[in-house]
Design a protein around this nucleic acid. Structure first.
Lengths: 221, 221
DNA sequence: GTCTATAGATCGATAGAC
DNA sequence: GTCTATCGATCTATAGAC
């Protein structure tokens, strides 16, 4: 087929298929979109392949022909989400500034990113909830998201020697853990009204702990 | 391991007391024991009332007559577990010693308690995994476990003025968050071999951060 | 109160037409 | 490759005997 022929027929084909059908949408991606909606909302066990097919706009047999069975579809979805959410980690700047200003900004960005992304929240819920029955998928999550996050924060701490951090990796886990725990209690477990706390208080406390820190040698007179 | 030994002894004593069973065990408790085994292993959706009845040693109709429906049974189980696990929080001592020695001991105890209790781990998995569909149960978890934990650590920090903690509650969340995040990555998400770290490194880093901390006034020359 | 037996719906997965 | 139609298993919940 020539380009000219496609151009002439474009309007006609569009009217027939009701889609901008210059290129057919990849069915696999289409299915994964529907699977994401269902799995993130209902979890693994409560998600039916019928509803996945309906949400994706295809037949159930098409889903099975692409992904084998329910577990295969679930694994493909988790791997896709782990890659998608990884990209949102690399958007960090302000490394050159002083920690006094850059650290709270770093934490604020991370907090806002997770708090404003219900999809990310539902993904973590799903991974933790199924980590007992799908340990391999939990490890993919750790490999693609937790590990890069820890390494990034660890490098940040190590490249600011004035902070006197003896163990950057362990300290990175403390900072990230504080943020993750805050999100889990306030948002994931709906503890906002039971143990209320403004994010600023946590950010200030973390910054204060890390900034006004002395080396053990200097502390023990 | 002393924990395993205690568990073995407890099971033995329990078996002994079951022998002179002149009085039948409460059916409701019996059902909840079976429900716990099934829900903690398979999650909410993948747990069938047939297997709960079989695990409890009663008929399915008996389960329904006691708890109404599947959700009612699940709610009763979560409330029972939230009360049971609360008791394990109050076993803390060594408040009088110096933080330099009592703080790492406090953290070590908390870590060992969770790491050596797969039931507790599975309970957290279940609560987080179902927190989107059962927000009320997640709030019960926060009310009975997270909130007391934060308050306990907050009081500990406040009663050691030499630590110069400006915001004890926020700092308590940092410490607990670091421990919870460590357990979640290493054990719950099976990240032991992907991001290995000895618990001692985390404990030392936390202790170092908190102990060698100066008040903001003293830090800014 | 507790049981057996079963209804009615929905599940994962597949065969066969096109 | 994608569809419709369907199978056998399993699910929640209940009716009725004891």
């Amino acid at each position: 087929m020539s380009v000219n022929y496609l151009s002439l027929c474009f309007g006609y084909l569009q009217a027939l298929t009701e889609l901008p059908a210059t290129e057919p949408i990849d069915k696999a991606v289409q299915i994964l979109e529907g699977a994401m909606q269902e799995f993130l909302t209902h979890g693994y066990a409560a998600t039916s392949m019928d509803r996945v097919a309906a949400a994706a706009g295809v037949s159930k047999a098409t889903v099975y022909s692409h992904f084998g069975d329910k577990e295969g579809l679930f694994e493909a979805l988790v791997k896709r989400l782990a890659q998608q959410k990884f990209l949102h980690l690399t958007t960090l700047d302000c490394w050159h500034e002083e920690p006094r200003h850059s650290l709270p900004q770093l934490i604020t960005n991370a907090l806002q990113h997770v708090l404003c992304d219900p999809e990310h929240l539902a993904f973590i819920r799903l991974i933790i909830g199924e980590s007992g029955r799908f340990p391999k998928l939990a490890q993919i999550f750790v490999q693609n998201l937790s590990k890069p996050g820890i390494e990034l924060m660890s490098q940040y701490l190590a490249k600011h020697p004035q902070l006197n951090i003896a163990d950057p990796e362990a300290t990175a886990r403390i900072i990230i853990g504080a943020v993750v725990y805050f999100v889990q209690i306030q948002e994931m477990l709906h503890g906002q009204e039971i143990v209320p706390m403004e994010p600023e208080r946590l950010i200030n406390a973390i910054t204060d702990l890390v900034i006004t820190h002395q080396s053990p040698q200097a502390a023990s007179i």
